[in-house]
């Protein structure tokens, strides 16, 4: 192989990868594309052989979803629940994760394992106790219990994620701060926290995804005035295929806000993960 060939071959490979990846991406996005098309069709054209690709698009179903079904109320509820979850989950998880990263590994290990064991318990078995708790505290159809439940089931992941970040921040920094007379709280807040910001962004994004999309607890713990989007969307499904175009429009509607958020924050996601979330 001559020296001039190598860059050429490399360029050709890059093109091949580019093409392969493009094809894969299109195939991979097919379910989404198809759902978008379905939401623009009348139900009669939605499920045909051969598939109907040319049709007269209608925005009727989107209109129904957004303007006839209190969509904005559900969206508001979802945003409150998601924001609440993120705002509690990330600080709490960061504190615990920091402490975990600063205690001896042999004590941290079992705690982390225990946290994950909790995470594996089937959620549906928690739904009934949660509801009993909610009834007892008169907190059904309020945001707070749903938020706390979501924070709780999300804590193990947040702690584990943040733990990786804090491990990556040298202990020397804490010790230097301690020598300067900082308390552990001050060391954490002034020295460590700014360095962990990329990690917190990642943790926040994952908490957001979980809380925005969660269905079961939201079904059980919300009521008329606090219903979140996934629960509301579920009611568009079923029984009659005239509602399938509506289901599709609803599904697209619920995706849009979170897609926008993710598009805006995507670079922080990669940057944050790169910064060391996964080096634990």
């Amino acid at each position: 192989m001559s020296a001039a060939d190598a860059p050429n071959r490399r360029r050709r490979d890059t093109w091949l990868i580019f093409i392969a990846l493009s094809v894969f991406t299109v195939i991979n996005l097919m379910p989404l594309i198809w759902a978008v098309l379905t939401s623009l069709k009348d139900p009669r054209d939605a499920f045909t052989i051969p598939p109907t690709i040319i049709f007269e698009p209608t925005l009727e179903y989107h209109r129904q979803v957004w303007f006839e079904n209190d969509f904005f109320v559900y969206l508001k509820n979802s945003l409150i629940v998601s924001a609440g979850t993120v705002l509690i989950s990330v600080p709490f998880g960061s504190l615990a994760a920091y402490a975990l990263s600063r205690i001896p590994r042999r004590s941290a290990g079992p705690i982390l394992s225990a946290l994950f064991t909790i995470r594996m318990f089937p959620h549906m078995l928690l739904a009934i106790p949660f509801f009993v708790m909610g009834t007892f505290l008169n907190l059904i159809d309020s945001y707070i219990l749903l938020i706390l439940a979501l924070v709780a089931i999300n804590q193990p992941f947040t702690i584990w994620l943040m733990h990786g970040f804090f491990l990556d921040i040298p202990r020397d920094l804490d010790e230097a701060a301690a020598i300067d007379g900082c308390t552990s709280w001050q060391a954490f807040r002034i020295v460590i926290l700014p360095l962990a910001r990329p990690g917190m962004t990642v943790a926040a994004l994952f908490s957001l995804l979980l809380s925005y999309n969660e269905f079961l607890f939201a079904l059980v713990l919300t009521g008329t005035s606090t219903k979140t989007l996934p629960v509301a969307i579920a009611s568009f499904g079923g029984e009659d295929i005239s509602s399938w175009s509506l289901s599709a429009a609803g599904a697209i509607g619920i995706m849009l806000p979170i897609v926008v958020v993710m598009l805006l924050l995507q670079r922080y996601l990669v940057r944050g993960l790169t910064a060391g979330a996964v080096k634990g």
């Binding site: 008169n138 907190l139 059904i140 159809d141 707070i144 219990l145 706390l148 008329t224 005035s225 029984e239």
Partner: peptide, 26 residues
Amino acid sequence: ALLLAAMAAGPAAAQDTIRIISHRQP
């Protein structure tokens, strides 16, 4: 504190409306 606040704010409104739940079909 949050728990208390939520309890105080309470779901009071839910009590006077009649809540119907049903399967969805035409």
